[in-house]
Design a protein around this nucleic acid. Structure first.
Lengths: 131, 131
DNA sequence: TTCTAATTGCAAGCTGTTTGCAAGTGGTTG
DNA sequence: CAACCACTTGCAAACAGCTTGCAATTAGAA
């Protein structure tokens, strides 16, 4: 869906700042922290990035993730299906993790109804292993 | 292992403050934040709790967890051989995810040698599901 | 084009973590 | 078992990241 349509559907005013934040997230291959987003922006105040993100979360467009890092990270929910990554700790290469279906297992074991999840793996890729 | 032995083995001075922090963690059934630990203490300055924890982490005795509230939480690593958690999106309750071993599967599928990973599951807990 | 409610940038405030320092203490040594 | 010293403590102040109030600006409806 195009951003204009998406914003309109969600009753979000289409400002330059919000467009830019949205586009940065849509191009990102990984979730980004607030300051990572701001660094990608041409010239937007931190508080505006912050408020854009809060608006997007509230409208259900963006998801907030917590990893072993003090700063939460953000991604577009619409990219959710591509949200399993594996990253090489040597060369930085990022691959997608396909067909790793753990949700059913987690569901069964915990009796929770899973509404969201994120998995990220760090390892040494086959190429670097050979070196 | 008894705390005196453990501290000695790790070359940590055995002070009243550290003993107390350690004992609070060893009794805890969930990871605790710094101020939760301090509240359990008889009368220890916040910075001493903080520094005890940092020492324990550095010695590999304690693990730091991020669960999406602002405050990281801490648990004894020995209680904790490979824990994953699941968090309720309604009430914030945190449960442990037992016996979810995905590493072997990821290893097999990707040929990466996994060195670290994050998994985050958000769902609605059984109690909230009933409401 | 005009009008208004929503959004922006800025600066200040808040919450939680980290650090510098003087005073105090564990534990090693003679 | 006394003396010593490097490590630890409590306190207060600094820091980092997030949040908010406000006056000026702007999107978009009328």
């Amino acid at each position: 869906m195009h951003e204009k349509e998406l914003f309109h559907k969600n009753k979000i005013k289409l400002t330059d700042q919000r467009k830019e934040v949205y586009n940065i997230l849509s191009r990102a291959i990984q979730p980004l922290s607030l300051d990572e987003i701001q660094n990608e922006c041409y010239k937007i105040d931190f508080s505006s990035v912050y408020r854009s993100i809060r608006t997007f979360i509230q409208k259900g467009i963006v998801t907030e993730h917590y990893f072993g890092d003090r700063k939460p990270k953000y991604s577009l929910k619409m990219n959710d299906s591509h949200r399993h990554y594996i990253k090489c700790s040597k060369c930085g290469r990022i691959d997608e993790l396909k067909n790793v279906c753990i949700i059913d297992e987690v569901n069964k074991k915990t009796k929770y109804k899973i509404v969201d999840h994120y998995m990220e793996f760090i390892g040494v890729c086959p190429v670097c292993l050979k070196k």
